[in-house]
């Protein structure tokens, strides 16, 4: 091969993200290039460092490509964070990925200095997975301890009157089982690898698969490496990462999420989809999170309100696009 790339990612080689997303994408790039490109995927941080260092590694060219969770480095991707907010992200990863795609050049690009973004995506959204407490209104979460997913996720938990608790992911099953936390804001997709079905009784989401916010992810290349590539190789990457692919990634994460929930339901857990009325009480409780975010990013000169409005509009426009 003329061009080899090291793609560094934090999860294990068997994780759905690698098997169902990164590997097919890498293969598509390789095929598009007529075999001139080779992408080696290094899972589980095998090239060293901790997950928060990934973005720095790709900026510095320590690795060529990364897949990372934007929330590992809070505050570094303020514009993209709009898509993590509850009531902005609702229930549709495909439409949300497409909205990010359509807003990328005009609104989000500034977040990604020093890297060339291949694609961005979200998962299917934070659901509420509770140990033994049935939740139907914000009053039910009041006084509970919930594991936080991201910094805005922590605000969501506060807005529901619960105590945000941080802990390493491997400790989550034990912490749930023993009641160190009463639940977690986390997608269904995490159920199989952590066997969350054994430690929880309730899988709860809002009406019509609406969730309590989300997390954004990126696959990005070192800028200098990108700039050095000939146009046909760039095109091979572009074609593999086109608008259809962003939509496809939404489907991949939706499917992984559905599979996770199925495991929980099959093992006898209670799945609760709240009614529209119940959902509305949650939306009202979480509304201050959006305001807080708008106010905070406006301190750094970002038009948060504009981003939220545009994101909501484009997500609605792209709904049902698949």
């Amino acid at each position: 091969q003329e061009f080899t790339f090291k793609l560094h990612q934090p999860l294990s080689a068997n994780a759905s993200a690698q098997v169902n997303m990164l590997e097919p994408w890498a293969k598509a790039v390789e095929e598009n290039s007529g075999g001139r490109v080779k992408i080696e995927i290094f899972p589980s941080m095998t090239l060293g460092g901790r997950p928060p260092e990934l973005i720095q590694q790709v900026r510095d060219g320590v690795v060529d490509l990364i897949w990372t969770v934007n929330g590992y480095t809070p505050g570094l991707f303020p514009r993209s964070e709009a898509f993590e907010l509850p009531t902005v992200y609702k229930n549709d990863p495909v439409a949300t990925n497409l909205a990010m795609h359509d807003m990328f050049e005009s609104d989000l690009k500034e977040d990604y200095k020093g890297v060339e973004v291949m694609f961005l995506h979200v998962h299917a959204g934070q659901a509420l997975q509770m140990r033994d407490k049935e939740v139907r209104s914000p009053g039910d979460t009041a006084g509970t301890k919930l594991r936080i997913p991201t910094r805005t996720g922590a605000w969501v938990i506060e807005s529901l009157g619960a105590a945000p608790t941080a802990m390493p992911v491997p400790e989550l099953p034990t912490a749930l089982q023993k009641g160190v936390v009463d639940g977690a804001l986390i997608p269904w997709e995490i159920i199989p690898p952590l066997k969350i079905q054994d430690q929880t009784e309730y899988q709860i989401e809002l009406n019509n698969q609406e969730r309590f916010g989300n997390t954004t992810f990126q696959v990005a290349m070192n800028q200098a490496r990108w700039d050095s590539l000939p146009d046909d190789i760039k095109q091979a990457f572009r074609d593999a990462s086109n608008r259809d692919w962003w939509a496809k990634v939404g489907e991949i994460w939706r499917k992984a999420d559905d599979d996770g929930l199925k495991i929980a339901v099959d093992s006898g857990n209670t799945y609760i989809a709240l009614s529209e009325e119940e959902t509305e009480t949650f939306r009202q409780a979480m509304a201050p999170v959006v305001d807080r975010w708008i106010e905070e990013v406006s301190d750094s000169g970002i038009d948060g309100a504009g981003l939220v409005e545009k994101a909501r509009g484009l997500i609605a426009e792209n709904a049902g696009a698949q």
């Binding site: 929330g71 480095t73 809070p74 505050g75 570094l76 991201t150 910094r151 922590a154 941080a166």
Partner: peptide, 14 residues
Amino acid sequence: LDQKAYNYTSAILQ
């Protein structure tokens, strides 16, 4: 300098 330039902060207490 990187931490400062890119404004790295902790998640909750920032």
